[in-house]
Design a protein around this nucleic acid. Structure first.
Lengths: 79, 79
DNA sequence: GCGGATTTGTACGTATGTATG
DNA sequence: GCATACATACGTACAAATCCG
């Protein structure tokens, strides 16, 4: 999946949804790290600010946990 | 040379240009190391991130080569 | 070979400025 | 005015590679 430049949905929301889909389909598994901010930047062609906004949204959704210096990890599956 | 705080040119570009000038005028010679990131930080009063951005730019210009644990070295003179 | 110091690599936190719609 | 998006610049923390006594 990629960011749709033409979509009215903000880039950071699109990115959060892409990563959420990867969690849902098992591409990203609970207790494993998601790609770093720098990696997501490169992969999706967006700025770090946009990546951080996406990850912040996912934290607020309870989908990931962020640890300074260690990265952002997929949360336990919601029961 | 020092960083000009008032210049519209980003600090990291200014620093890369300062070091490039030192290579050009022989202050820094081919096959010798440039000062460490920590040293450049102190000397020019910028953060390590800014130093690293400057060195990255110089690598992209082919002016220096970086070796983890050994430092960054002035490249062979371009013929 | 080992331990400590040095140097670069990686990762996130935060703030500010600029531009656009 | 506000939200989005990008770039710059500061900081912290820790890991990995190298060097040297």
């Amino acid at each position: 999946m990629t960011i749709d430049e033409m979509s009215p949905v903000p880039f950071y929301v699109q990115l959060a949804d892409i990563l959420a889909a990867q969690i849902a389909d098992g591409t990203l598994k609970p207790r494993t790290p998601i790609p770093s901010e720098a990696h997501l930047q490169q992969t999706y062609g967006v700025s770090r600010g946009t990546v951080r906004a996406a990850v912040k949204l996912m934290r607020e959704r309870g989908q990931v946990l962020t640890f300074p210096g260690r990265g952002t990890w997929v949360a336990e599956k919601q029961p």
